[in-house]
Simulated assay, not measured.
Amino acid sequence: MALFNFTGTDPSQPSHYSLATTTPTCPPPTQQMCTLQAMNDGANNPVITDALKNEIINSLQNEINGLNVSLKSR
């Protein structure tokens, strides 16, 4: 699995992430997407499965980190 930084506006779109080359920092605003852990599709985009998309939704709605989803800290 690879770590991806959220760099766009839509957490469900693989093109809105970039492959993390260093440990990411997650500046404010709070409780928004920061990083995602997922398989690399070979073009440095995350493979966002239905299960991972559900984890993203759950994390954002409940303002909690998931197993593969990290939100910006409060």
Results as ranks from 00 to 15, higher is better:
1 M>D: 06
1 M>N: 03
1 M>P: 04
2 A>V: 02
2 A>Q: 11
2 A>Y: 11
3 L>G: 00
4 F>I: 07
6 F>H: 10
6 F>A: 07
7 T>V: 15
7 T>K: 10
7 T>L: 05
8 G>I: 08
8 G>P: 07
9 T>N: 09
10 D>S: 14
10 D>Y: 06
10 D>W: 01
10 D>Q: 09
11 P>L: 01
11 P>W: 01
12 S>L: 15
13 Q>P: 00
13 Q>E: 07
13 Q>L: 12
14 P>Q: 14
15 S>W: 01
15 S>K: 06
16 H>N: 15
17 Y>Q: 06
17 Y>A: 07
18 S>R: 12
20 A>F: 01
20 A>H: 02
21 T>R: 14
22 T>S: 13
22 T>K: 11
23 T>L: 14
24 P>W: 08
24 P>L: 09
25 T>H: 12
25 T>G: 10
26 C>D: 08
26 C>G: 09
26 C>K: 11
27 P>A: 15
28 P>S: 13
28 P>Q: 11
29 P>A: 14
29 P>V: 14
29 P>S: 14
29 P>T: 14
30 T>Q: 10
30 T>R: 09
30 T>K: 07
30 T>M: 05
35 T>C: 02
36 L>V: 10
36 L>I: 11
37 Q>C: 04
37 Q>E: 09
39 M>L: 12
39 M>P: 00
40 N>V: 02
41 D>I: 03
41 D>F: 03
41 D>L: 02
41 D>M: 05
41 D>G: 03
42 G>W: 01
42 G>N: 01
43 A>Q: 13
43 A>N: 12
43 A>T: 11
43 A>I: 03
44 N>L: 11
44 N>F: 14
45 N>Q: 15
45 N>R: 15
46 P>F: 06
46 P>A: 04
46 P>C: 05
47 V>T: 03
47 V>L: 04
47 V>Q: 03
47 V>C: 01
48 I>E: 05
48 I>W: 04
49 T>N: 01
49 T>P: 00
50 D>A: 12
51 A>P: 00
52 L>R: 05
52 L>V: 05
52 L>N: 04
52 L>Y: 04
53 K>W: 02
54 N>C: 04
54 N>H: 09
54 N>L: 10
54 N>M: 09
54 N>I: 01
55 E>L: 05
55 E>Q: 15
57 I>M: 03
57 I>L: 07
58 N>L: 10
58 N>D: 10
58 N>M: 07
59 S>N: 06
60 L>Y: 10
60 L>V: 12
60 L>P: 11
60 L>Q: 13
61 Q>I: 08
61 Q>G: 09
61 Q>E: 12
62 N>V: 05
62 N>C: 06
63 E>L: 12
63 E>N: 15
63 E>R: 15
63 E>K: 15
63 E>G: 10
64 I>G: 03
64 I>A: 09
66 G>L: 07
66 G>W: 07
66 G>Q: 07
67 L>D: 06
68 N>T: 02
70 S>P: 00
70 S>T: 15
72 K>C: 14
72 K>D: 03
73 S>K: 13
73 S>C: 00
73 S>D: 05
73 S>M: 04
